[in-house]
Design a protein around this nucleic acid. Sequence first.
RNA 1: GGAGACGUGGCCGAGUGGUCGAAGGCACUCCCCUGCUAAGGGAGCAUACGGACAAAAACUGUAUCAAGGGUUCAAAUCCCUUCGUCUCCGCCA
Length: 432
Amino acid sequence: MLDINLFRKNIREVAENLARRGFVLDVATFERLEAERKDLQTDTQTLQSRRNTLSKQIGIAKGKGENADALMAEVGGLGDQLAKHEARLAALQKELRAFLLTLPNLTHASTPSGKSEADNLEVRRWGTPRVFSFTPREHNELGEALGLIDFETAAKLSGARFSFLKGGVARLHRAIAQFMLDTHTQKHGYTECYTPYIVNSETLTGTSQLPKFEADMFSVKKGGAEGEGETLYLISTSEITLTNSVADTIIPAESLPIKLTAQTPCFRSEAGSHGKDTKGMIRQHQFEKVEMVQIVHPQKSYEALEELTRHAEAVLQALELPYRVMALCTGDIGFASAKTYDLEVWLPGQNTYREISSCSNCEDFQSRRMQARFRNAQGKPELVHTLNGSGLAVGRTLVAVLENYQREDGSVDIPSVLQPYMGGMTVISSAK
RNA sequence: GGAGACGUGGCCGAGUGGUCGAAGGCACUCCCCUGCUAAGGGAGCAUACGGACAAAAACUGUAUCAAGGGUUCAAAUCCCUUCGUCUCCGCCA
């Protein structure tokens, strides 16, 4: 959520920044709501003040045993008017908040301007794509030929966009996740977390999946599908639970930065992406991800973004998977982010780079929604900055390993750093 | 699932209808005192949103005692609902 004071002081600048995203700010609506709010709030508070004063006088009078009828008559007359004002003010403030909640974050000056994915800026590249002596196959072909990725069974159980892994591939999937967690906890200083997979709507509002992106979420009802209970949601990333862990708290300054990581499933309804990546494991309703979250001092967040991105890169480097780093442009960047780097891994089967991690600095956009603060040098509570990044998407990493490490006979070499997690196995073949 | 207790500021904790935004303590900040180091004295110290101001501070108003609703001229205090915590019982991995 954006700071409402920016709107009061500099709405022009806010509108210009949002326009970089292609977002048209409804200035007229804001100004109408704000003007009405201002008058109404002043009037309401004047009435409240009058009532409070009179009520106090009644108390004093009664304490002395004096007659307070005249005072009570006057304050009684305020009641209706006050109730009306208060109700209207509450409605208005709700409307203003709802308006603010639908606005995306301002983008940082260093985020390149652009309209779409095509305008993203390549920042750097690492590794050289392997030269194959045969035509490399896509992971789904490989997995099915090995008999270790079973999309049919997954479809029978659940429908499209799910996968059922077996044997060496299932184990490789687990090994990848474990390797990532160990890397981040042992080398990068993150605290490993195990978090809920089902959360309430307030939590989702904190990280801004709600109210705007409800269609992307899977929801469940407490008390069963027909239950009367509140609607809860399956997390679409552990950014949600990790970041919201500091919601409504004042963090001691010396505890910053807080660095958290977790491996969780991610559930995405993928509404609006029909026909996109329908083959294979690239776009699934359920996938595992190891997430990194940092809660930092506002002056350190851009430093932290570079660090966090390097942490994600370190995993790709250890796995010896070629990749490139893209600075997302204003037209492609996420709703909550001021600046984002995407890591794109080389997929020889598809002969292209594909997103495998997204590292974002959300500045105070989420912390304002969550009321996550720290005590600054002046002793005053101040909003922290929040960052998150995939470190990495486990399913897509599995895809990348399968495609990059495939042999002509369809078996797959296991990257050396993963072998200890595979009980010393060095290759996955159909025999296993 | 059943029975009961509880939810107050950064923390502990008092407060059952009126001068309570809330005693007291701890922590923290500033000042004073003091050679004996978890010593003493004084002052300050919640948050959010408004108002006014060029702006900040000071000032001032409103709201906030888990959340929401109700009763009342007036609610931390009374009533209802929800959430959470604790204890006991039941069930369960």
